[in-house]
Design a binder for these strands. Structure first.
Lengths: 117, 117
DNA sequence: TCTATGTGCAACTCTTAAGTTGCACCCGAC
DNA sequence: GTCGGGTGCAACTTAAGAGTTGCACATAGA
């Protein structure tokens, strides 16, 4: 569950939470480098157990950053750029908004200083 | 401490960790809207104590997302767009890298299919 | 000076994320 | 069939983050 399209806010939230963990970022790096990989394979170079990797992959999948598909007895995971793209856009827009507000505040402050002298 | 310029990796990490918490994002929204505010003021509309807000602001400050300056007996915090901008760029670049890799894999797969028939 | 308000520090609770181990199950290969 | 490697599920431990309360300290203003 928790797989139906959520609101943009929840989507961004889940992506940020997913990316906040260094092990998960490392996992994403490995996946991006290999294209496709199983949880067992991914766990090998990492200092954690396969089960830990499985849990991380579940978090990443909930965030829409990866997806897994069963092939025979193994599950192959791959990276999903869409969610990351969306979050990157959200962050860029937020940064622009801050810049805009700060410029505005600066402008108001200067105007006030002009008036006071 | 922890205020000297760190590596890009740690900077991104701290920003992501900071943004992963919804209360901190709300705090950033409030700060961006008001331009400047104290911890006490920021805590009022929020469902948490002033101390909780202070801790969140400390996390945000470590990430470089806000900065506080003492004015008399109060400490005024303001938003700092630079760290957010840097992280947004990092994320955009990462998304582009994923897209590039996926396109590459797709190309290789198609070439292999052509060869096999 | 006295008071009220904002800040800083410390100790504490509570929840949850991260990781572990153990075992049952499934499926491909021999 | 059976054997081995890959998955999935569950229970458990542990560490850290989020929040709280209480109190001491500092400063603007009456």
């Amino acid at each position: 569950m928790t797989d139906e399209p959520r609101g943009a806010a929840e989507a961004v939230d889940s992506v940020l939470v997913a990316l906040a963990d260094p092990t998960r970022r490392q996992l994403l790096d490995l996946l991006a480098a290999q294209g496709e990989a199983t949880a067992t394979t991914l766990a090998e170079p990492l200092p954690v157990s396969r089960q830990a990797v499985v849990k991380h992959l579940a978090v990443l999948a909930t965030a829409g950053l990866v997806s897994g598909s069963r092939v025979g007895r193994e599950v192959r995971y791959a990276v999903r750029p869409a969610a990351l793209n969306a979050t990157a856009r959200w962050m860029t827009a937020l940064a622009a908004d801050w810049d805009r507000r700060l410029a505005n505040i600066k402008r108001v402050a200067e105007a006030a200083q002009r008036d006071s002298r």
